[in-house]
Computed example of a mutant assay.
Amino acid sequence: MGERRRLTNLAYRLLGSLADAEDVVQETYARWYAMPRREREAIGSPGGWLTTVASRICLNLLGSARVRRERYVGEWIPEPLPEHREWTSSATAAAADPADRVTLDESVDMAFLVVLEAMTPAERVAFILHDVFRYPFAEVAAIVGRSPAACRQLASAARRRVRAAQAPVAPTGAQAAVVREFKRAWEARDLKSLMGVLDPDATVVADSGGLVGALPQPLSGNGPIARAYLEIARVAPATTLLECTVNGRPGLVAQQGGVTVTVLAFRIVEGLITHVWAVRNPDKLRPWTDPRPVGGGPSVPE
């Protein structure tokens, strides 16, 4: 059971969904305990066995996920991950929730996860296992079912995708200052300031799964985005904006009546917001449903 944190870390990065990651870990352990005791005791490396099984389950799920997402209503964004110390109310809750078992680093950054979504399932598995979890290609090959040379090529292709999408990452404090200014301008309904903190070619993508209202397609341009968010402030004046860590980066949480209705993740380049990912699908916000506030800040003004 000491492998559970590592397996959850692996599955979340492979699938971009905390709920799916937990299901994978549960299935992996179900297969382990379904074996006769004698067979389990004969396995020299239980951790290696569990990793292999979990990775293969994820590989199969990634193939079927592409089909499911073709039927998904609207845009699909990876499930946002909270930082447990900001939202769990007790040690018991933290230990019980899979979100507490995911280590926050650059490999769960929302921009990074979005790049992973563009990879083939084999590329994603080979890259995550080798570049993030440092598994040698011989072991990756046994999991993916290809030769070590082929896995090396898969990881190399994935690495090129990541490098092409990468931008210099500002210190956390600088990112937080930009997000805080976005929040201030949004609350004040200050169109000029809101446009000023957005890159002229900024893009916002919203994910509702068709369950709640959201932008039906990506919106580009600092003017259209700023006006869209001011319209949101107008029609939902009782929304409270809270500063919070989202996937290891400064982000915002929008709550209504103490219930989280939107989680916003940002990509910030050279002091300007270039991407906003707004997750509104209630199914993806379950780790954020702790009624205790996760940050501070006034409500969007009426």
Rank of each mutant, 00 (worst) to 15 (best):
M1R: 11
G2H: 14
R4Y: 03
R4V: 12
A11D: 04
R13L: 10
L14W: 04
L14M: 10
L15C: 06
L15M: 07
D20C: 08
A21D: 08
E22P: 15
D23C: 14
Q26V: 14
Y29G: 14
R31Y: 08
W32D: 05
Y33I: 00
Y33V: 01
E39A: 14
R40I: 08
E41R: 14
S45K: 09
G48V: 02
V53L: 05
S55F: 06
I57N: 03
I57V: 15
L61H: 00
G63P: 06
A65F: 01
R66D: 04
R69T: 14
E70R: 15
E70H: 14
V73Q: 11
G74W: 05
E79Q: 15
L81Y: 09
E83P: 07
H84Q: 03
R85Y: 08
R85N: 04
A91M: 09
A91N: 08
T92F: 01
A93C: 12
D97C: 13
V102L: 13
L104R: 13
E106D: 12
L113D: 04
L116V: 07
A122R: 08
I128L: 12
I128G: 09
R134Q: 02
Y135M: 14
Y135W: 13
P136T: 01
P136W: 06
A138S: 10
V140I: 09
A142R: 14
A142E: 01
R146D: 11
P148Q: 09
A150H: 11
S156C: 05
A157I: 06
R159I: 00
R159T: 11
R163G: 01
A164G: 07
A167E: 06
V169P: 03
T172E: 01
G173D: 01
A174G: 03
A176D: 10
A177D: 10
V178N: 05
F182S: 06
F182C: 05
E187D: 04
A188V: 09
R189M: 02
D190R: 10
S193E: 03
L194S: 02
M195Y: 00
G196F: 04
D199V: 00
D201I: 02
A202M: 07
T203C: 10
V204N: 02
V212E: 06
G213V: 09
G213N: 09
G213H: 11
A214S: 15
Q217I: 10
Q217C: 09
P218L: 09
A228W: 13
V235C: 03
V235M: 05
R249T: 02
Q256C: 07
G257A: 05
G258I: 11
G258M: 12
V261K: 13
T262M: 05
L264Y: 12
F266H: 08
T274G: 00
T274S: 04
H275L: 04
V279W: 02
N281T: 11
P298Y: 00
V300H: 04
